[in-house]
Amino acid sequence: MKPSCRLYRRLPRHDSQRPSAVTIGNFDGVHLGHQAILERVRAHGLAHALAPTVITFDPHPRAFFARRTGRPEKAPAQISTLRDKVQEVVRHGIQQLAVLRFDERLSSMSPETFIEQLLVEGLNTRWLLVGEDFRYGHKRAGDIELLRQAGSRYGFEIETIADVPDAAGQRISSSNLREALAAGDLDRAHALLGYPYRLTSHVGHGQKIGRNIGYPTLNQPVPERFALRNGVYVVKVHGLSERPLPGVASLGVRPTVTDTGRRVLETHLLDCDLDAYGKLATVEFVRFLRDEEKFPDLPTLIAAIDDDARRARDHFAFHEL
């Protein structure tokens, strides 16, 4: 059984002086490149009696700077919710996870202070794994050489890791994953992640329109700049039953029934009606069916949903759940 993980929202730690094997990154999506990093940290930590540790940030630093400069459209699309990211990182054997709020204080921290407060005082770092182009501190002024100098002074070792390629020799990156999701290319996303793309969030109340037209839905919020393409998907829903439940889901702004412009994920469970309000559900995206559309009236919308549900049933008739 894997050891439990301690979650920290600020450093230094309040409950431990244990020496740590550390890596730093955003880990949005936790793709195969990230997983190689996590495995290296886990293996080194366990081999040297160090706590395998990740430092990550919320929000994404680029999202913070995009908002601060009044250009929110420059923020990277968000691949995973914080909950999904944490769960995936922990699944790979990480024993300490520091989720630090990226704010004005952190963005203006000098590289030297970054090393001293987060790595040395914060985690008693003895070994640090970073990418070859890793930058940190105010205006990204810190580099690998400064880390090596600090390591000699404070007693920690630096190891760098090169990019991880996919089967075709292409670099595995969050940017490539965002491109696949923006295109609704779930096969490519699966290949980059090593697992099916999914989203976990609590089920909330909707406008009950789906129930009124014979298609009750689970309504779940998505990140403001969610990476996945708007549209209709064949899905599996986990967490509401002992077995995955088949469904068809619509991601988008629901242009036929509302003009709020707020994106939401609405999932209709096939041949299953249950009260899931307030429960945590994971929607696994299986197949892209079509783009979101604005229909002239409800009968036309219902006819389209009928066809979506039929196609989802056909999918599960040929593929085991």
Rank of each mutant, 00 (worst) to 15 (best):
2 K>M: 12
2 K>S: 01
5 C>P: 06
6 R>H: 12
7 L>I: 15
8 Y>V: 01
9 R>S: 14
11 L>C: 04
18 R>P: 00
19 P>G: 05
26 N>C: 08
29 G>A: 03
29 G>Q: 01
30 V>I: 11
34 H>T: 06
37 I>Y: 00
43 A>H: 13
44 H>T: 10
49 A>G: 08
51 A>C: 07
59 P>H: 06
59 P>M: 05
64 F>D: 00
66 A>I: 11
68 R>K: 13
68 R>P: 00
70 G>T: 06
72 P>S: 07
73 E>N: 05
78 Q>I: 15
79 I>L: 10
80 S>I: 05
81 T>W: 04
81 T>Q: 03
93 G>S: 08
95 Q>P: 00
96 Q>S: 09
97 L>F: 08
99 V>L: 15
104 E>Y: 11
105 R>K: 11
111 P>I: 08
119 L>V: 05
121 E>F: 02
123 L>H: 00
125 T>Q: 02
127 W>G: 00
130 V>Q: 09
131 G>C: 05
133 D>H: 06
135 R>Q: 11
138 H>G: 00
138 H>K: 10
140 R>A: 14
141 A>P: 04
144 I>F: 09
147 L>H: 04
150 A>K: 14
152 S>V: 08
154 Y>T: 11
157 E>P: 00
158 I>L: 15
168 A>F: 07
171 R>F: 10
174 S>E: 04
176 N>Y: 07
178 R>I: 11
185 D>G: 05
186 L>H: 03
190 H>T: 14
194 G>R: 04
194 G>I: 07
196 P>A: 06
197 Y>S: 02
203 V>L: 08
208 K>I: 02
211 R>K: 09
215 Y>T: 03
216 P>T: 01
219 N>W: 09
221 P>G: 08
221 P>A: 13
222 V>R: 04
223 P>F: 03
224 E>P: 02
230 N>P: 03
231 G>N: 05
234 V>S: 09
238 H>W: 15
238 H>M: 14
239 G>E: 09
240 L>K: 03
247 G>P: 09
248 V>L: 11
249 A>E: 12
249 A>Y: 09
252 G>A: 13
252 G>L: 11
253 V>K: 03
253 V>N: 02
255 P>I: 13
259 D>M: 14
262 R>H: 15
263 R>N: 14
269 L>R: 09
271 D>M: 04
271 D>E: 15
275 D>N: 15
276 A>D: 13
277 Y>S: 05
277 Y>E: 09
279 K>M: 14
280 L>R: 11
285 F>K: 10
285 F>W: 15
285 F>S: 13
289 L>D: 11
291 D>M: 07
291 D>N: 12
294 K>T: 12
295 F>I: 00
304 A>N: 06
305 I>Y: 02
306 D>P: 10
306 D>G: 13
308 D>C: 13
313 R>D: 02
314 D>Q: 14
316 F>N: 04
317 A>H: 10
319 H>W: 10
